[in-house]
């Protein structure tokens, strides 16, 4: 009887310990990365661009290095298949990074006089993530392309 009570006591202590560990785990889950956007933010940004219209896959090719050492300067190339004639051209291209504090990276507006729909620029990536490019065609339809990347040193979180 006496022995059992000691066992019970220690078991209770164990439960308490485990509970505390659980609390720490929950805390670790909530505390970090409140600055980073959630995929919902990116979905909202996409919704604002398309106005709820369906986004088809294909036509858009997004090129970023699959492994990035420093997220502060990542060369990003986006190209859209299009004849770029007066009747059929790419109106705009939007690039969205779902892991950045602000998902929108840039928007370009093209005309038939652009000749090709190819843009190269340098962007910041805050985290390993999927980057999307959404193109609006002259007939109002939307196409998207995406690329995944692994970032070892993230942008925007460092102190000055």
């Amino acid at each position: 009887m006496h022995k059992e009570s000691i066992f019970q006591k220690s078991r209770r202590a164990w439960f308490k310990k485990i509970q505390q560990l659980g609390l720490i785990a929950v805390g670790a889950w909530f505390s970090p990365a409140t600055v980073f956007a959630k995929p919902e933010d990116a979905a909202k940004a996409i919704q604002e661009i398309t106005g709820g219209k369906p986004v088809l896959d294909g036509k858009v090719k997004l090129v970023i290095p699959p492994l990035v050492e420093n997220g502060n300067l990542v060369v990003l190339k986006v190209s859209v298949e299009s004849p770029m004639t007066a009747n059929d051209y790419v109106k705009s291209i939007h690039v969205i990074a779902e892991g950045n504090p602000l998902p929108n990276i840039f928007t370009v507006y093209l005309t038939p006089r652009s000749g090709t729909a190819t843009i190269t620029t340098r962007v910041r990536l805050a985290d390993s993530q999927t980057v999307r490019a959404i193109a609006q065609m002259s007939n109002g339809s939307f196409y998207q392309g995406q690329a995944e990347t692994l970032v070892t040193l993230s942008a925007c979180t460092e102190l000055v």
Binding site: N100, L102, N104, I105, T118, R124, L125
Partner: peptide
């Protein structure tokens, strides 16, 4: 937007 790196470079045609 803020996601463009320092010394913004843009290449277009």
């Amino acid at each position: 937007y803020s996601g463009i790196g320092a010394n913004p470079l843009i290449i277009f045609t």
